[in-house]
């Protein structure tokens, strides 16, 4: 399969990730959506890397993305639990203290 096919899958996954962030009213879905978006980016990195110059750069980026995603998931989960304890809800729309 050509490069275009991978990029298309990546674009679709990216869009679905955004939908996942926007439409659901549970902060865990926001987390999942972010993971989807990161995965979409990863597909692009690796695909362009393998079809392109085949230096290590793209795959290195992918690895760093995975690392950062792991770190982000850990911190985000801690935040989710804190938000839950603070607001007794996991709906992002209820955690709107920022506007106070």
């Amino acid at each position: 399969m050509g490069l275009g096919a991978y990029v298309a899958v990546s674009a679709a996954l990216f869009g679905l990730g955004i939908v996942c962030i926007l439409v659901r009213r549970n902060v865990l879905y926001v987390l999942m959506g972010i993971e989807m978006i990161l995965n979409a980016a990863n597909i692009n990195f690796v695909a362009f890397n393998r079809f392109g110059a085949n230096e290590l750069d793209g795959r290195m980026f992918a690895i760093f993305t995975i690392i950062l995603a792991a770190a982000e998931a850990a911190v985000a989960l801690a935040i989710v639990l804190n938000v839950f304890h603070l607001f007794n809800s996991v709906k992002p729309s209820e955690a709107d203290l920022l506007r106070e």
Binding site: I43, V46, N49, R59
Partner: peptide
């Protein structure tokens, strides 16, 4: 997809970590 892209290390990392 990573395996199809012949990047098996990243594929394994993907499964392990994600």
């Amino acid at each position: 997809l990573f395996i199809l892209l012949e990047s098996d290390f990243i594929a394994m990392a993907q499964i392990l970590i994600y």
